[in-house]
Design a protein around this nucleic acid. Structure first.
Lengths: 351, 351
DNA sequence: CTTCTCCATGGAAACGATTCCATCATGCTT
DNA sequence: AAGCATGATGGAATCGTTTCCATGGAGAAG
């Protein structure tokens, strides 16, 4: 339990001033002789600069925050691995928080990060845009991954505001842009469209969508892809929990026995769909075809192996970390990564 | 980007000294009037004490480190959720590192944690006892979860040491106890034994074990449970990677077509076993029975659903966090949590 | 009425790093 | 040879907090 060596110890042992030590260690100028001596002494004393001291002085803590809904979900695990990979290569520590898809816990975590001095965060958001505003106003650099925060509920209030501005003779400013935060997303639009086309190609007409929280874009893409008369009953939602997902899937199958294919908007939903189908004695793909968003390792283990829309989870995390770490000069735009339909065995022709 | 309020700002705004503010905020004594005023001002200014300042002063950073081999593995995700749950309730931030089961990366991460001032760590160790010694000597409080570090290779040197001590007339001190670090583990012994008994009861005689890194206890328990003439060829190991696990499983099936049951010592191994069996056209459970360590959500999705040895991953993490946070007075002993055999459909009678 | 105790309070030191600035030596230019 | 530029170096201030200690006032005990 011997206490750690400080810069002062190193300075004394090397017979130089602390300023010199600091300079040597942070790459400043120093004479070769001095540099060598300082480095030797530092190594021999196993000196490590204290993050607390440095942070205090430079008024910013290194490190980045990572906020995900649930680490039990393989996709978020993958995303986290991506973030960690880049953080490691940048030598930055990662402070982790799991929000359970609860906006309240989320903002609590944001508060804690702020307190820790962590001012750069990669987040899979649960709260809406409004709930993220305090964070960015407090000076946080935020990059969203996988999802965007839900549009604020005050969207309705936007109309009146607009009118008011016109009355005042002001130029109709863009109606309070939700947030100008960069994000790294998968190309949901294209992924969903490809899946739906594929199912249509197999002859399916009554295709259902099973959605989770925070993916408005996927639903929108689904609506667009299935085309004109959208059967609203075939679009159902669950919250983040497993129970909720199962209930939604089971409810869907029971209330609409005529559906012939399901697109699950996430791996938790896909899991629920498989379970519910089995429980109700629906065979996949004979009775119902299934496409799941997210390619997770166990998709191949199911029988039949699941046809999936793969999105590069690890890379999403990696790129997000990259963005948040070099959020310097030009504010980076949102990055969209490609998806890929991986056909395995869970879809069959419509009978 | 307005800079955050400091304790000094609060003190000025409230018309008191900074010492008083600090006292009020950290629960010291103060007159009711003052306390109220300070709290009001602090709230109004949205004041948050800077962790950097506090850490510097008290020479220790709050927070705890979490080191896992791979967040993509559902079990570790579960464990992490447990740690996070307890950390949240204790108001402590969690610094995460993923080691990829690589001792070198692991000690790198330990170094970084040390630098950050994080001196309490929950770890699923990859390195051996020797590689953890520097960490504990540097004053880190470590609690191992799920695994113990492999016995150091210098175990052989133990004999001589002992003799030497006898010669010196010293009391025969315990021969360099590997590490007196507490740990939270599942009851591997009992779990494996139950599984093997179950398989034996189904008539299986040639039972194989597919092991991963860091679970000597499981192998030992397996050897013990299968009884006297242990067929060493039926015990194979993989490193942490998916490829390695698949190779080990496939190799096992091919080299020993006479085996009738497999115990997979982790969910990654179980996954590999299912895949390899399918590839080689072995039916589960008709041709080969399978029991997997870890109950993960997707175990139920396989067909047939996998019979598993469930260990309480979330609770392991929770308890480990608990131990490391109140590592005060009496050094806590190792905690062993129960396992449970969950019979589903992947085991059948021997034919 | 005096003295003692106790409590609220504020000033100031300390924590360990970075960084500005002054100092000093060295070598070059004129 | 004198002045000047350059580069190495150390002193000291600073960051925001906690905590030790001194101060002062009020109430209690003698």
């Amino acid at each position: 339990m011997e206490k750690r060596a400080t810069i002062k110890d190193v300075a004394e042992a090397a017979g130089v001033g602390i300023a010199t030590v600091s300079r040597v260690l942070s790459g400043g100028s120093a004479s070769p002789g001095t540099r060598e001596r300082v480095l030797a002494v530092a190594a021999q004393l196993d000196y490590r600069p204290s993050a607390a001291g440095r942070n205090l002085r430079q008024r910013r803590t290194g490190g980045l925050g990572l906020l995900v809904p649930d680490l039990t979900d393989t996709f978020f695990g993958l995303l986290a691995e991506g973030v960690l990979a880049h953080a490691r290569s940048a030598g930055e520590p990662v402070v982790l928080g799991s929000t359970g898809d609860d906006p309240e816990q989320e903002s609590e975590m944001v508060g804690m990060l702020l307190e820790q001095g962590v001012d750069r965060v990669v987040a899979v958001p649960s709260g809406d845009a409004e709930s993220w505003r305090p964070a960015v106003r407090a000076g946080m650099t935020v990059v969203f991954a996988d999802r965007l925060p839900g549009e604020s509920p005050d969207q309705d209030a936007e109309g009146p505001d607009h009118d008011l501005m016109l009355l005042d003779g002001l130029p109709p400013a863009p109606p309070a842009r939700p947030l100008d935060t960069p994000a790294v997303l998968a190309d949901d639009r294209s992924g969903i469209r490809t899946a739906v086309r594929y199912l249509k190609g197999l002859g399916h007409r009554r295709i259902a969508y099973l959605g989770g929280p925070g993916h408005e874009r996927r639903v929108a893409a689904f609506r667009e892809a299935v085309g004109a008369p959208v059967d609203e009953e075939l679009i159902v939602f669950a919250t983040g929990s497993r129970d909720s997902a199962y209930a939604a899937a089971a409810g869907l199958f029971q209330s609409r026995p005529d559906l012939s294919a399901v697109v699950a908007g996430g791996n938790a939903l896909g899991e629920a769909a498989v379970l519910a189908a089995r429980e109700l004695d629906l065979r996949v793909p004979r009775d119902v075809s299934l496409v799941m968003y997210d390619d997770v390792p166990w998709a191949e283990l199911c029988s039949p192996p699941l046809t999936v829309i793969a999105q590069p989870g690890r890379e999403i995390g990696y790129r997000a970390a990259e963005l948040v770490l070099r959020a310097g000069a030009r504010r980076p735009r949102t990055v969209v990564l490609p998806t890929e339909l991986i056909v395995r065995g869970s879809c069959g022709p419509h009978r």
